[in-house]
Each structure stands twice: as C-alpha cells, then as structure tokens.
Design a protein around this nucleic acid. Structure first.
Length: 262
DNA sequence: ATGCCTCAGCTCCTGAGA
C-alpha cells in the first residue's frame, strides 16, 4: 500500500500536475493508493471529481474558498469519512479522515502560525492540542493509523536549511516542536526517519530568493505511522520531481510504502 | 526591509502563506 501527502497550493492551478504525477507513479511500478491533498483553495462544488475518476481515483473532499481545503484521493473506497477534528470547533477546513484498505488515514493541513506570540500562533497551539486529544482516541480505536500532511513544524535542526538564522522562528520554535513530539508520544513514528536519508532533505522551499535552486528549505510535510504499521513500512521518500513543472507548488509530495502483514 | 514569490479575490492592490 502506497500513501502520499502533497500540499498543492491551489488545486485549480496544480490539477494537471497532480494528474500527471499520479499517472507517473502508476507507470513507475506501484500506483499511489491514497493521496492526501492540502490547500485546495476551492469549494466542494468546484472539486474536479471527474478528472480524478477518469484515472481511477475516488475523492473525499473538504473544501473551502480562498484558503485551506483538504481531500483524500483513494483507489479503493473510503469509509467513515470525518471532516475536521471532532470536539474542536474550527471554521477552517483542515482535516479529513477515512478508513481505506484497513488503515485509518488522516490528512491534515496544520495551521501556519505566522509568528510566535501572534493570535494565529495561539490558534495553532490550541489546534495542535485539539488534534492530539482526538488522535489519542483514534489510535485506541484504529491501531493501524497514518497521520500525514503539511504539519508546518520541523522536528529539529536537521529539518532546517539555516538552523542558526531561523532559530525560534515560525515552524522552528520549541513550543511547536514540543507539540510535534507530544503527537509522537501518543505512539506514532516519523516514517521518513525510519530510513537513512540524504542530509539537507526538505519538503518545502520558499518561492522567493530562488529557495529551491539553493535548497533553502524546511522539512515540514510529514507522514506519521502508528506502532502497528511501523514494522510494515518499506520506504519513505520526498519526491522532488514535480518541481520540474513550470509552476510548481512550494511543497513536494512525501510518499510512504507499507507492506502487508503476511 | 514588515522585501524577494505565488495565489485568490468585491482583482491593477491586499492578505496570507511559510
């Protein structure tokens, strides 16, 4: 089973790239079974269900105008779909979860937080607490669980191109990293770090200042897997190939491959 | 530089992203 997450920064703009990428994954060996998308920036009535259907994907969509918006694309049917975090009131469309092929899959667009001390940072902290309380319950119900998306948090300095210059700045604060470790402490594992990886591996690069060309990036898109899935994880990679497109997203997709139990 | 780029929208500027 192959799962992936990708912040597309407008599905209107990136739809052809997502379709191409899914087709390329399929022809390269194994098709993506579940793709979690973030930052759709469109409402459900504008979601391109037909385009995905034509290449074999069903879509569960939780859209929003202008900002946010998330979706799960699946080859097999998705059941028990839940939108946002039960018990946490939120007017932003950030989370969608479903059962797919026996796995509870949560796709999430974590708040940006803007700047430590800001209202948006407080919202981010409250959101993270709400997420954690809910994921704790989800893990109890679904031992096989994947939590993936744009976390907008780096684990540590290895995820940061300039840890000195960006010390304590947004995505790199100790408060955010504490929240990320608290999620891990529920019984989750950073799939990417289960394997040897090249140094200076990032999933996001600033559009400004030739960030990608200079590899001035952050690793803020993550796939966390539960204890039960950890021994089944075969690989986890960041795929920079969509950056070759003319108008790429500022995020690259992250992919995890999970084997069967037998 | 509270900038640099990209996207959406009550679109020729502004807010937000990260």
């Amino acid at each position: 089973m192959k799962l992936a997450t990708w912040n597309v920064n407008s599905l209107n703009v990136r739809l052809p790239q997502v379709l191409d990428w899914l087709a390329a994954q399929q022809s390269s060996g194994a098709a993506v079974d579940v793709l979690a998308l973030q930052e759709l920036k469109l409402t459900d009535d504008k979601f391109p269900f037909e385009a995905f259907s034509q290449i074999g994907y069903q879509a569960q969509c939780f859209g929003q105008k202008t900002y946010n918006g998330v979706a799960l694309l699946t080859r097999e049917p998705a059941t028990d779909v839940v939108k946002n975090i039960p018990g946490f009131s939120d007017d932003m469309a950030r989370v969608i979860s479903a059962n797919v092929q026996g796995v509870r899959v949560i796709g999430a667009y974590f708040p940006n937080g803007q700047e430590p001390g800001s209202d948006k940072f407080d919202y981010k902290m409250n959101w993270l607490k709400g997420l954690r309380d809910w994921v704790r319950e989800e893990l109890a119900k679904h031992p096989k669980l994947v939590l993936m998306g744009d976390y907008n948090i780096t684990f540590d300095d290895a995820d940061v191109w300039d840890p000195v210059g960006l010390k304590d700045s947004i995505h790199c604060t100790e408060e955010e990293r504490y929240q990320l470790r608290a999620l891990i402490a529920l019984g989750l594992h950073d799939a990417y770090r289960l394997f040897p990886q090249a140094e200076k591996s990032y999933s996001w690069w600033d559009y400004r200042n030739f960030g990608f060309r200079r590899n001035q990036g952050l690793r803020i898109d993550h796939i966390l897997v539960s204890h039960a899935l950890k021994p089944l994880v075969k690989a986890c990679v960041i795929d920079k190939s969509p950056r070759k497109n003319e108008r790429p997203s500022d995020h690259a997709p992250v992919i995890v491959e999970v084997g069967n139990e037998d």
